[in-house]
Design a protein around this nucleic acid. Structure first.
Lengths: 196, 196, 196, 196
DNA sequence: TATGAATGAGTATTCATTCAT
DNA sequence: TATGAATGAATACTCATTCAT
């Protein structure tokens, strides 16, 4: 029996290959066979380390969310709600495939099924954690709206639909955030103002 | 010689099968074979009615955008910008797979590739036309933001991520729209106010 | 009922399309559908004029052999056996697809089956007729050898194998023919000499 | 772990099936599915042993050329140029489909495309090597001519065209070779004479 | 711990041909 | 005389997964 840390190293090696393929070619490019080939293993060998292809995806997603969390926290430290929201936007703008993975946008459409059998709970918690700074600084509603807007803008951007409107996704995101504190009668704005 | 309307009926029969498959299983579920099986034809038979699988997608999408246009126009007539935006939201909330189709979210991630050989231009124009009332009533920026927000909320909603935040996608959409006219110093708001 | 000559014109129209496709893309490019499309008909319509795809090929081949006959006769008139043989070579060098058709080299390998049900006899007679001047001028053996050599060189030339030997197919053909009359003790040479 | 020779046995089993299909039905009859069915495997299983259909063809051709080389060398040892040339002729007369494979005469006509991704160079070298004894004994020109004549005669023979002339392909080949050394003023003949 | 081997289902598209109209 | 519609078989190749070794 191999030592557990040696085992973990191999897992990480496989995951690194998966991440790289993922960034290069998206969900459909990161087939199990491709991951195996890239990491120097046989497809069958991966089944020792992971129960299924989906489990690998879940792991990659978990890692992605961890990096997202760090980015958002950094943004919050620098610039509060606005900084956190922009960090979120920039993170996914830089790694669009991870956004697709996060929402499981591959596989044909908006899948309400998540990532298969019960992998979701942990990942949902991780997503919630990543957005915690935003929720703390701007309140549940402003945080959710900013998140949704970022997601929508990025989807439009990645699919090149935003060009139809002649606008920049990031500029729109910024203007949305800039507008927020200027609204006096709005409870979300009060929360944001208080947090500053 | 077969009567043209009989011909059209068969086309529609196939398209209906395609639409149903889309709704059930997304883009990837709507393979040519699946569409053929569902509509009671041989795969080869579909090639008499449509030149390619992509052409079927394009047709379904064209139809979807036509219905969207009608919905948005109806909403605008009833309630101006707010009505148009909510109509858009409701339309895609009722037919989430058509949103995926509109963004061609199949094939592993956010694909910027569109629909192949030059089918895109027409469809992009159709999408732009569908949003025309919103752009006219609220200006380019407010329209784009509302569209992006709707897209983001719907993606979150369909993937069940919105539940994490304990909020309703539609409620968020409504509150975003409700907030809009209340901002005095904002050019978008002025435009909306003027259009009322 | 259409007049027979009108009928024949349509046949010729279809055959012209077949020939063009044939020259451009060979046997495999000249599918029945392609011929139909090119000639402005439906695939099914061709079955009124021809009983099968093979019959079209046979007709094209018949025409090819007629043109070959003319070419060989012209060559013989100008330069006797040598002229006839070179005309044969040049004809197929200029229309390599017709050589393939003549030997039915399409469809995977050397087919001993000919062109299906009993179409062969007529075509074989036509081939024999095309080579008649060569047989008359050089004798059966020299004619057959020159024909076979031309075929072999052209096959090697078309498949680019001749390049391996650093030689030109036509130069080899010429040198073969040049050598012929110089051999005194050879019956074939005598025949050729006599014919000059 | 499977023993390597067992592995090789399976490969050979598949190749044997491919060869048999070639012999029976030519290149086009030896589809991947057909090879799989004949060898008792699933189509997908073949991809474990060979990277592609073309790779199977290449292997069969490689083997064919190896046997051809041995035959030609044997003929050369026994009877010099004449023996080598006749051995070549007899080899392909006995395995006509291998001639077709060697020239890749599938796919509609005389295809100059070879065997795809860089498989050709090695096979071209092997073909050249197979003819080396002939080139050494008779010179480049006589070797090429004899090869071309053999090819042409075999094509005519296999397609039953030779019968039209009332001659035997092998007899013609023999008479061509018999004539060669009797020509005094010919450089090729001198080379052949010297090699004796 | 990993491999070689294999499976069965899946992908879109093309083919020659038939037949009712 | 011609068409629209349809068929069934075929093409090579990829997929995630399993299992004996």
């Amino acid at each position: 029996m191999t030592r557990p840390d040696k085992n973990a190293a191999k897992r990480d090696h496989i995951l690194a290959a998966a991440k790289a393929l993922f960034a290069e070619a998206g969900l459909e490019g990161a087939s199990l066979r491709a991951i195996a080939a890239r990491s120097g293993y046989t497809p069958a060998a991966l089944y020792f380390h992971f129960p299924s292809r989906e489990a690998i995806y879940a792991e990659v997603l978990r890692d992605s969310l961890a990096r997202l969390t760090a980015a958002v926290e950094g943004g919050a430290a620098r610039e509060g709600f606005r900084g956190a929201a922009l960090a979120l936007f920039d993170f996914y703008a830089a790694h669009p495939q991870e956004l697709a993975l996060g929402f499981y946008l591959g596989g044909g459409g908006l899948a309400p099924r998540g990532l298969g059998q019960g992998l979701d709970p942990g990942l949902n918690a991780a997503l919630l954690a990543a957005l915690a700074p935003m929720r703390a600084l701007g309140g549940q509603e402003a945080a959710t709206e900013a998140f949704a807007l970022a997601v929508g803008l990025l989807v439009m951007s990645e699919t090149r639909r935003i060009r139809l409107f002649g606008l920049s996704a990031r500029a729109l995101m910024e203007s949305h955030l800039a507008r927020l504190p200027q609204r006096p009668g709005c409870c979300a704005c009060r929360a944001i103002g208080a947090a500053r």
